[in-house]
């Protein structure tokens, strides 16, 4: 980072600190009832208290687990199905339009169906999260497979490569940028659906934590949970971006 960029970053942090100070002022002057809006000091205290007693940490781990299992299942299934559909022209012609119809469907609408089938269980949450997170990954994989440079397929044919080898050696690497972008997108979906499922099914997690805090009007705990959810969203998306950069590093050198 250049010097100017660092200075701008510091200025930007100061602005953010200014907003937090304004928030503190609003809370201290009681412009908004403290029942709804705790000051940042109380939210921070609740965060520290929650972590030192271990409650908040276990809820955080619960949410991260739901998110990770659902997302990983969706990634594996999404890439496999996407590869299957994307690598065959016939499958694309028959299946892709149905997928296009399902894509704008609000995935949360599947929750009642999942509850009816699986009950208010951990399995229901995993099913819903995986179902919601699979779309961006699968559609990105199909798109990536369809957009592979045709000459590469010609090369594969003249080398008499098998279909598995074509997918593993040519199509998958060249579709990788699309797939990773889809995986990043579906991470957000997985987090949102984890929270919704925890709220609905009372599963151990931050969703349940924020709902119970709200029901008991413990606004400081509530804000602590929301802040933690924001941090979770931020850190997971940064982590995936880092993986993305590392896995795609070959692209800039290869081209």
């Amino acid at each position: 980072m250049s010097r100017a960029a660092i200075l701008w970053r510091i200025a930007s942090i100061l602005v953010a600190a200014g907003f937090i100070a304004a928030w503190q002022l609003v809370a201290d002057l009681r412009l908004v009832s403290p029942v709804f809006l705790p000051g940042p000091d109380r939210a921070w205290a609740a965060l520290v208290r929650g972590f030192s007693s271990g409650d908040l940490a276990s809820k955080l781990i619960g949410t991260l687990e739901h998110m990770a299992y659902g997302w990983l299942a969706a990634s594996i299934a999404g890439i496999a199905l996407g590869a299957l559909i994307g690598s065959s022209r016939m499958m694309r012609a028959y299946v892709a339009p149905s997928l296009e119809f399902l894509r704008p469907l609000p995935v949360s609408a599947i929750i009642p169906v999942a509850i009816a089938m699986l009950g208010l269980t951990q399995g229901m949450a995993l099913f819903v999260i995986a179902f919601g997170a699979i779309w961006p990954i699968m559609l990105a994989t199909i798109h990536g497979f369809a957009a592979v440079e045709p000459r590469l397929y010609e090369v594969a044919r003249s080398l008499q490569m098998s279909r598995g080898a074509v997918i593993g050696k040519i199509a998958l690497p060249s579709a990788l940028p699309d797939i990773l972008a889809g995986m990043r997108l579906s991470l957000t979906v997985a987090l949102i659906l984890s929270v919704v499922c925890e709220i609905l099914a009372g599963l151990d997690g931050l969703g349940q934590w924020v709902l119970l805090s709200a029901r008991a009007f413990r606004s400081a705990d509530l804000f602590a949970g929301v802040i933690l959810l924001g941090v979770t969203g931020y850190l997971t998306s940064i982590a995936v971006s880092l993986v993305e950069q590392r896995m795609l590093a070959w692209q800039s050198t290869a081209r």
Binding site: A11, S12, A16, I192, V210, V226, G230, V231
Partner: peptide
């Protein structure tokens, strides 16, 4: 834009549904 960067990046990743309990009590 540069001044607001940290503020925006701090608020944006909050999943919209996490606001649900806050709006519920308010």
């Amino acid at each position: 834009d540069r001044l607001m960067e940290v503020t925006v990046e701090a608020i944006r990743p909050i999943p919209s549904i996490a606001l649900l309990p806050i709006t519920l009590i308010a």
